[in-house]
């Protein structure tokens, strides 16, 4: 990898590890392997959001031309959020695209992602299904996001109603993950979800 990118990442790691946010366990970064080309990030779900109490892992890939081009970041932990693909974890955030500037750092990226969790932008969605739910049925969106945070990211609130519905589909031979995805996209309408899966 380019010398500048390596040097920069080394310094940024130091910056992040000495930051207040790390001290409060709100963000974390570590290297994957020895190349500096890939890192593992982690952010805590912000308070007063459906993601509170959950932790989300991120895959961070550093391009050869870093910091003149943005790092490629996606969620590794599954998440229900209008700006993150519920399938691949791809993120739609302007600073990871054309609004990136060389003065930004891994720390600012992680903090921006945290901010994105706190204030979704359903008008610029990565996941059209989630976005529609977020806009039209905010109540259901909130519960679904909370449920996903519990199922995949160690979030605290257990939704027995949703779990029962998932179990019903599992009894029909559907995997838990598939059942959860279908029910979530059908606003937890068991009939519609069943139809969607078996059609």
């Amino acid at each position: 990898m380019a010398n500048i990118a390596v040097q920069r990442i080394k310094r940024e790691l130091k910056e992040v590890l000495n930051s207040d946010e790390v001290a409060r366990c709100s963000i974390h970064v570590e290297l994957v392997g020895e190349s500096f080309a890939e890192l593992k990030g982690e952010i805590a779900g912000p308070p007063d959001t459906p993601y509170e109490g959950a932790r989300f892992q991120l895959e961070i890939k550093i391009p050869e031309t870093y910091p003149f081009n943005p790092p490629k970041v996606r969620f590794v932990t599954k998440i229900w959020h209008p700006n993150v693909s519920s399938v691949t974890g791809a993120i739609c955030l302007d600073i990871l695209k054309h609004q990136w500037a060389a003065a930004m750092t891994l720390r600012t990226v992680l903090l921006s992602l945290q901010a994105l969790l706190a204030s979704p932008e359903p008008d610029d969605p990565q996941d059209a299904v989630v976005a529609r739910q977020c806009k039209d049925k905010p109540q259901i969106f909130h519960l679904t996001a909370q449920h996903w945070a519990n199922a995949y990211a160690g979030g605290p609130s257990i939704n027995t109603d949703y779990e029962n519905k998932i179990r019903r589909l599992k009894d029909l031979g559907v995997t838990e993950m598939n059942a959860r995805a279908s029910l979530s996209s059908c606003d937890w309408d068991l009939e519609r979800a069943t139809e969607q899966i078996f059609s």
Binding site: V76, G89, A151, Y152, G154, N178
Partner: peptide
């Protein structure tokens, strides 16, 4: 994409990742 959608062990769902 579809081939990688069902890989996570449900018992380890709390740590599920792609």
């Amino acid at each position: 994409l579809t081939s990688t959608e069902y890989v996570v062990d449900p018992r380890r769902a709390a740590q599920a990742m792609w």
